[in-house]
Amino acid sequence: MSMVTTYLSWALLVLGGFLCVSGSVGLLRFPDFFTRMHAASVTDTLATGMILAGLMLQAPTWIVFGKLVMILVFVLLTGPTAGHALAKAALHSGLKPLLPGKSGKIEADTHPSAGGV
């Protein structure tokens, strides 16, 4: 039993760590604000959730487990909300996402502020 939880916990931790790294790469390399933000918010929720789940499996007492659950709930509430607020603020101030043009290729929006943050 403890062997299984240990392996499962490590699998979750490593996967969470990998998502953190891939999220950071996405944040640096994605073409426009909205895709970058997507990378950041995936890191925020999924990676943090996986790391917390991995830690929960190793929690020595129920109190620690409960605290981790509370942190998870808090992260799940705030992360997506922050992403939503960011995206909304960006759209509100006139930033348009990069979309495929008529030719099917992604082209920069004509809006002067598009693309750069």
């Binding site: 808090f74 509430l77 705030t78 909300t81 939503h84 607020a85 909304k88």
Partner: peptide
């Protein structure tokens, strides 16, 4: 107009 923010903050403020 920020319905999502308002609802989440209503949940968070007591916490």
């Amino acid at each position: 107009e920020h319905v999502v923010l308002r609802i989440v903050s209503k949940m968070l403020i007591p916490l």
